[in-house]
Amino acid sequence: MSSAVRRLSEVPVGERAVVRALHGERFLSRRLMEMGLLPGVEVEVVRRAPMGDPIELRLRRYALSIRREDAATIEVEPSR
């Protein structure tokens, strides 16, 4: 595994990353994947909520918000 691999929760606001794997609880992962957040897709971290959590992601032409603790279970690599 390369050192470039990190968690989605660590990606700074305004940057993009490509999803590698989802390690969260099965049903959460399934739900995220069915909404298009699955390995191979590019995600942009748009902003954090005013109190720091949750975060807003942009993928597949729409905005999705998830909690940081859940974002921490998603493994990403740098955008190509």
């Binding site: 959460l28 729409y62 859940d70």
Partner: peptide, 12 residues
């Protein structure tokens, strides 16, 4: 039960 998840679309 299952932890309440927060997976929310922010619609246009």
């Amino acid at each position: 039960g299952p932890t309440p998840t927060f997976v929310l679309e922010l619609p246009p």
